[in-house]
């Protein structure tokens, strides 16, 4: 029985793989079926995942625990402490989150701006220091050459290459001046450097994608058709 079931699912997976691949020819009914199935299954899976990983542990369990503590021991201020596992404080962010649903009620749909404002403000505050730290200050530190970078010729070469191309790239992304005069050749070196980097990245990623495609073909020829051992 299990063999039959396994074979059944392999057939389903193989046919869906072929249906998706058929898009390489043109949009067709098989691709559309697979696409809609994929989106539907992915949405259903995500909702289940969010229910078990977010809704239950972050909303239901704290309130249920707080209810049990209240009925067993009576009221205590700890039930309002957000740092406790079981608390009623969670109701406040739940209410703010629930304001997202107000967009379905035109008369109060303006209230959706409250959770959006909080979300945007919160995440912007998180993103800006993190970006400064990772993308600016750490890069700045790594770009500064020290005397030890001049210990050997090879180190000197690479150190100076990185330093000068960093300067050229920064000048390319300087928008307050036209790329004319002395800035023109420097900015051209900058964009050339960027393109060399992209070329290397392109080759590396294409290799990874080809390995993914090979994996799918191995599934088709080995697990499904059995023509490859």
């Amino acid at each position: 029985m299990s063999m039959i079931l396994e074979a059944f699912w392999i057939w389903i997976a193989a046919l869906l793989t072929l249906a998706i691949f058929s898009f390489l020819w043109k949009d067709n009914v098989f691709y559309r079926t697979a696409e809609h199935l994929y989106i539907g299954v992915a949405n259903g899976y995500s909702i289940t995942l969010i229910y078990y990983n977010v809704v239950l542990p972050n909303m239901v369990y704290p309130i249920r625990g707080a209810n049990q503590a209240l009925s067993a021991d009576g009221f205590s201020w700890g039930l309002l402490n957000p740092f406790n596992d079981h608390n009623y404080f969670i109701i406040l962010p739940m209410m703010v989150g629930a304001l997202y649903i107000t967009r379905f009620i035109p008369s109060v749909s303006w209230m959706i701006r409250i959770p959006i404002g909080i979300t945007m403000g919160y995440y912007t505050a998180i993103a800006i220091p993190a970006s400064f730290k990772a993308s600016i200050v750490r890069q700045l530190e790594a770009s500064i050459l020290t005397r030890s970078d001049f210990d050997s010729w090879s180190v000197v070469f690479y150190g100076l290459l990185i330093f000068l191309t960093t300067v050229a790239t920064l000048i390319y992304f300087f928008f307050s001046a036209e790329h004319k005069g002395a800035l023109k050749p420097i900015s051209e070196i900058g964009i050339l450097t960027v393109m060399v980097g992209f070329g290397a990245s392109f080759g590396l990623t294409v290799m990874a994608r080809i390995s993914l495609a090979i994996g799918r073909f191995i599934f088709l020829f080995k697990d499904w058709l059995g023509v490859v051992s």
Binding site: I20, E35, Y38, I39, A42, N43
Partner: peptide, 18 residues
């Protein structure tokens, strides 16, 4: 549309061709 990465790509591809 959908929170899954490749399901989203499949859906956007569908919109592009249709």
């Amino acid at each position: 549309m959908v929170p899954d990465q490749f399901a989203f790509a499949a859906g956007v591809d569908g919109i592009m061709v249709r």
